[in-house]
Design a protein around this nucleic acid. Structure first.
Length: 571
RNA sequence: CGGGGCGUGGCGCAGCCCGGUAGCGCGUCUGCUUUGGGAGCAGAAAGUCGGAGGUUCGAAUCCUCUCGCCCCGACCA
């Protein structure tokens, strides 16, 4: 065939594989994406996608588009460069800090690079939706977003510039929003399932966005940045930012109130060791500084205070410094007890029962026999601890599991948070002007790719799920100088492409070992090896990247065998 | 933004503590041999040591400043 025809030839493709992973790469997906020639890093949080990387991204995006279109989503594009005005109208111009890239145009007008598109999407709705007859709408885009991340990390998982599929629903009432939300909830499940990754759908924090409901899609992986609590009993699943749990009961003995000398023992660790008790016998008093003054947070010694849970009650806060502790409570840090202080106190509900050892509010001393009734009846009780593995599910009592996860998508009920300030209103059946009820829904395609690698790789390289692999089949003629091998390789290539498969042929004049190593690294699901020895018996090899299983089949039957195999594995 | 680490041929590193104008592996190029799991031999090209300033007869090595990258934490609408 002239110039190799339209065949995808490895020798012509830019696939710069590396024997060694960059030392500064930590996450498996980061190392492998670089080594296998899918991406290159330009600067912190900025990545170049190479030909193989693009193929993967396009496959993921195609799946996303198909499922979005299936629920009535309509694709649009929004400018990446935004005027400040719309962001000022919703208040986010000021509310968002250094994470937003800002600049001025030549006329001196304030502009920003969009980090999400609630504003511009709502602007569009405000201008062009008039009547309830035009609702509902679902608009989406697959677009570049920019965020000046404080800390880009883990390769493609947290970058400053990234593609995001974001969709927005516009409804006339809450009922409509419920429906749009539900459509997305299901569409997202289909998307991740089709992409071949394992995931959980969990309740998530609506955060400072103030929406009424939110879920996150989480792919289990040690490279993740979130933790979720999961209950095998009732299916409860929530981000630990809000997961409720009932800690195991403390076996702390009761006893009288008495001071005990604990010289220079300040931390839970030091005190438990010194008094020969377990951490759940202690009460931890943590002073934080909120906008409305110091707040004393109380949790059991074996619990971890969850900052976000506390933030929901008292707003933004930070840990108190040593001198602030002294100033607010008159006690040196390390010996704070819950009793007697005038500051606001928030205590975890587990502390309602039992007696504990707490700081004595006196340097070098702790106090035994501290209980809620006697010592901090003035505290507000609220779940402020971090759900831990083994805690009981708040719904059914079964033990919770904690898993580390990558956030691969989220869905939010926004309500009228954006439609009111941007005046996105419609006229209802009675002719009354009402704000549109909105939802927003995001997916990070690059995170899907990274999660797929995190969940599927071995010491030799990537193991792509078939649906998002850059190619489905790799044909490896061992000796490219052998005419018969090449003829058969090209015939099979053509035959497989005619059946609709995506095929790459490694026509490089390299030793077999080199080709095999690259094949494993790149992770194409199905590999056909055409070698002279096997050819003498009219056989070729088919090897599954995932299982490693090799089968020899007759040349004449190879194409059918592969087609069948792929269809079966895809089912 | 706080803490830590690192910047030396294309990639991965040594040299730095105890200053004396760079070395190893891989890759690249040429030739011969090899040819089913990252080949062997011979030869070659390629770095002024992130940048600036300073100390010194002399700086990759010491000092100051600066830029960049990574990790932990904070942040993450």
């Amino acid at each position: 065939m002239l110039f190799g025809g339209m065949f995808m030839r490895y020798s012509k493709l830019f696939i710069p594989t590396l024997k060694e992973a960059p030392t500064d790469a930590e996450a498996v997906s980061h190392k492998l994406m670089v080594r296998a020639g899918f991406v290159r890093q330009l600067a912190a949080g900025l990545y170049i996608y190479l030909p193989l990387g693009i193929r993967v991204m396009e496959k993921i995006n195609r799946i996303i588009r198909e499922e979005m279109n299936a629920i009535g989503g309509q694709e649009v594009t929004m400018p990446v460069l935004n005027p400040a005005e719309v962001w000022q109208q919703t208040g986010r111009w000021d509310a968002i800090g250094g994470e937003m890239f800002r600049l001025k145009d030549r006329g001196g007008r304030d502009m920003c690079l969009a980090m999400t598109h609630e504003e511009t999407m709502t602007w569009l709705a405000a201008h062009d939706i008039r009547s309830y007859r035009e609702l509902p709408q679902i608009w989406y885009q697959v677009q570049t977003k920019l965020r000046d991340e404080a800390r880009p990390k883990s390769g493609v998982l947290r970058t400053r510039e990234f593609t995001m599929k974001d969709s927005y629903s516009f409804d006339k009432d809450e009922e409509g929003l419920d429906k749009s939300y539900q459509l997305h909830l299901e569409a997202y499940k289909k998307i991740y399932t089709r992409c071949g990754i394992r995931f959980h759908v969990v309740q998530s924090d609506t955060g400072m966005m103030g929406g009424s409901m939110a879920h996150e899609y989480m792919a289990p992986s040690p490279a993740g940045e979130d933790d979720v609590a999961l209950c095998d009993g009732c299916g409860y699943a929530a981000n630990t930012e809000l997961a409720l749990s009932v800690p195991k009961a403390s076996n702390a003995p009761g006893g009288n109130v008495e001071e005990v000398a604990t010289p220079e023992r300040r931390t839970i660790d030091e005190v438990t060791r010194f008094l020969k008790v377990t951490p759940d016998h202690l009460l931890k008093s943590i002073l934080v500084m909120s906008d409305s003054g110091p707040v004393l947070a109380l949790v059991r010694g074996d619990q971890t205070l969850h900052e976000k849970k506390l933030a929901k009650l008292i707003g933004p806060h930070r840990p108190g410094q040593k001198d602030e502790v002294k100033a607010a409570l008159g006690v040196p840090a390390g010996f704070i007890g819950p009793m007697g202080h005038k500051v606001r106190k928030i205590a975890d509900p587990v502390l309602k029962q039992g007696t504990y050892i707490a700081g004595a509010n006196k340097e070098g001393f702790h106090l035994r026999g501290v209980s809620a009734g006697k010592h901090f009846s003035d505290a507000e009780f609220a779940d402020i601890h971090t759900a831990a593995a083994g805690d009981a599910c708040a719904q059914c009592g079964k033990p919770l599991r904690i898993e580390r996860v990558i956030e691969i998508g989220n869905i939010f009920k926004l309500g009228t948070k954006y439609s009111v300030p941007l005046k996105a209103n419609y006229l209802d059946e009675q002719g009354n002007e009402k704000p549109i009820i909105m939802g927003s829904y995001g997916i990070g395609p690059a995170r899907i790719a990274a999660a797929a690698i995190e969940q599927g790789s071995d010491e030799n390289g990537i193991i792509w799920p078939l649906a998002i692999a850059p190619y489905q089949v790799l044909i490896v003629p061992v000796n490219v100088k052998d005419a018969r091998s090449m003829d058969i390789a090209e015939e099979m290539h053509t035959a497989l492409e005619e059946k609709g498969f995506e095929v790459l042929m490694d026509d490089r004049d390299e030793r077999a070992g080199v080709k095999f190593k690259d094949a494993d690294l790149i992770g194409i699901p199905c590999r056909i090896v055409i070698g002279e020895k096997n050819l003498k018996e009219d056989l070729v090899e088919i090897k599954s990247r995932k299982t490693g299983v090799v089968e020899k089949v007759k040349v004449a039957e190879a194409v059918e065998a592969i087609a069948k195999k792929i269809v079966m594995e895809n089912a």
